[in-house]
Amino acid sequence: MSAFIISTGIVALAEIGDKTQLLAFILAAKFKKPVPIILGILIATLANHGFAGAIGAWLTSLADSETMGLILGVSFIAMAIWTLIPDKFDEADAKLAHFGIFCTTLVAFFIAEMGDKTQVATVALAAKYQALLPVVAGTTFGMMLANVPAVLLGKKIANRIPVRLVHGIAASIFAVLGVATLLATMKPELFSFLAFN
């Protein structure tokens, strides 16, 4: 259950002001049909995060638990720093209108999410928790928590969200996960309840 909750929270917070949320705002303003946009976001996220989660689960088979713990600890700290860097959005990501609303959203979101911080977070969380389904369900739910209101309410909420504060909270969570993972790896006898296993 903690894998689902942490995955949901981290991705929902990290997604605020992210380029894919900006894409959701643009698609909603352009097409004014929320249902196919929301369905496109859902399917694209499930495909993208399912792939990322599978990579994370596979990576755990490549290294022993101590090495993996060190890699994950450093990765979470790097994610904390990355979360504090504002995203830039390329309008070209939203210019696929000849495919129809659902397909435009599906393709645009899948492409925009490639290499994005929420995809990288999904890889790291799947490796950390070794719980593919709860992590992918959590990261997908987090994406929907951040993007469905963006599609439904658009610019009415865009200027009311304290993006820097939200990113600060997400970065803090990543940093705590990173430090806790490193401590559990280096001093397992003291932090056995946090240990990577």
Rank of each mutant, 00 (worst) to 15 (best):
M1R: 13
A3E: 07
A3K: 00
F4L: 15
S7W: 08
V11S: 05
A12V: 11
A14I: 05
A14W: 03
E15W: 01
I16S: 12
I16T: 14
G17E: 10
K19T: 03
Q21G: 10
L22A: 09
A24R: 03
F25R: 04
I26V: 15
A28R: 02
A28I: 07
A29P: 00
K32N: 12
K32C: 05
K33H: 04
P34V: 07
V35L: 15
I38Q: 06
G40L: 04
I41A: 13
A47P: 00
N48T: 14
N48H: 02
H49E: 11
H49Q: 14
G50R: 02
G50K: 01
F51N: 01
F51W: 05
A52L: 10
G56W: 03
A57F: 08
L59Q: 06
S61F: 08
G69R: 07
G69K: 07
L70I: 14
L72H: 00
L72V: 00
V74A: 14
S75R: 04
F76D: 03
I77E: 02
A78C: 14
A80N: 04
I81D: 02
T83F: 05
I85N: 04
I85Y: 04
I85K: 15
A92H: 11
D93A: 15
D93S: 14
A97C: 01
A97K: 10
G100C: 10
G100R: 09
I101C: 08
F102S: 07
F102C: 09
T105W: 00
V107H: 12
F109I: 14
I111G: 01
A112M: 11
E113N: 14
E113V: 05
G115L: 06
G115V: 00
D116E: 12
K117L: 14
T118V: 11
Q119I: 07
V120H: 00
A121H: 07
A121M: 06
L125T: 01
A127L: 03
A127K: 08
K128D: 00
K128S: 01
Q130S: 11
L132V: 10
L132S: 03
L133M: 14
P134K: 05
P134E: 12
V135Q: 06
A137D: 02
G138S: 09
G138T: 05
G138I: 06
F141K: 06
M143D: 08
M143W: 03
G154N: 05
K156P: 04
I157F: 04
P162T: 13
V163E: 13
V163T: 14
V166P: 02
G168M: 09
I169A: 08
I169R: 13
I169W: 01
S172Q: 00
V176N: 13
V176Y: 11
A180L: 12
T181L: 02
T185V: 07
T185C: 03
E189S: 15
E189N: 15
E189G: 15
F191P: 05
F191N: 08
F193T: 14
L194H: 00
F196A: 09
F196W: 09
